[in-house]
Design a protein around this nucleic acid. Sequence first.
DNA 1: CGGTTAAAGTGAACGGTGTAAACATAGAGG
DNA 2: CCTCTATGTTTACACCGTTCACTTTAACCG
Lengths: 185, 185
Amino acid sequence: MSTSPATYHHGNLHDALVVAGLRALEGQEGKAPSLRELARVVGVSPTAVYRHFPDKQALDAALAQEGLKLLAKEQQTAAAKAGGGSAGFAETGRTYVRFALAHPALFRLMFTQGHPVADSDRPDEARALLTAYTQALASNPERAETLALQAWSIAHGIAMLMLDGRIPTDDALIDRLLNTENLFS
Amino acid sequence: MSTSPATYHHGNLHDALVVAGLRALEGQEGKAPSLRELARVVGVSPTAVYRHFPDKQALDAALAQEGLKLLAKEQQTAAAKAGGGSAGFAETGRTYVRFALAHPALFRLMFTQGHPVADSDRPDEARALLTAYTQALASNPERAETLALQAWSIAHGIAMLMLDGRIPTDDALIDRLLNTENLFS
DNA sequence: CGGTTAAAGTGAACGGTGTAAACATAGAGG
DNA sequence: CCTCTATGTTTACACCGTTCACTTTAACCG
């Protein structure tokens, strides 16, 4: 986010709303912020929002996109710190789940909201990172795609089940579940 | 569900609401039915609902529980038809994902709503089936638990990503992703 | 059989939501 | 300086979940 406070009150409401939205999503668990609440926080009337977003859903989409950027960044630094390669790839998955647990409401929003992603426009950075790693690690392109989707599914499943309280949010458990070498004993 | 229409209008509103709720969840995509809408369908005032459920959330919980029962039943018959064993276990996973795609709103509700499951009261039938299969297939109990959670995570991840439009809802893709033998080429 | 009582349903109301329509205001450009 | 357009505001509507006070109904029991 540019976070340019420049002229603020009269100025860039758009960014102010996104910032307020991200802040609110970090707040009390689970509850997604309402359009009116965000307008209140920013100090503006509810309908003013519609000058910058056609929908509540559009605002949510902006927040989700911001979340994806944030996730990709965390994954990249974590993978780099692990030295790349298969160790880096593994770190990517751990970071994915940890991100979900650290920002539950934002993570939910990133996937709950309408499915405009994976469309003609370029894929988000997180997904690009995923395909890059799998293509480097797999023997052939088709295996790479399968591996990518499988890895994504496992991480996403763990994240969701933990967020929904179906699985204890144990940090060691994350590692144990992500370690898929010889899945069958 | 007992579905006893017995005295109906004056009679068991409780079950009538659950039935209406399940029907509504099968209706137009994604949208969860509102309490008022369900009351309208059943032909009763909105506040009458509160004689049978303390909360909207309690109604949702009842619907979710019904959904879990339904899923468990489908999994059991599918596994039995496959002859049990590891083939039956695999069928369990496929059925899980297919169920999610066939009843998206219900499936979402089953997990979105508060996390009262996995508590002191006996686990739901679907989960019992999962642990039964994994304990029979794994070499030792700890491996069994890990296997159970991993299998669950993969299936759940696939289901969620497909529901959210992140992954094409291809039937062949489900099988490809669930086939985790030699995950790493 | 009849009367009491508790369960079950009603209506109005409150605060919340997203959104539309008509109106106001400021600030930039000619 | 005046105008026009971008950006706000006010009011209003239809929905939502929930509360409260009230009425009806049916069941139980003397």
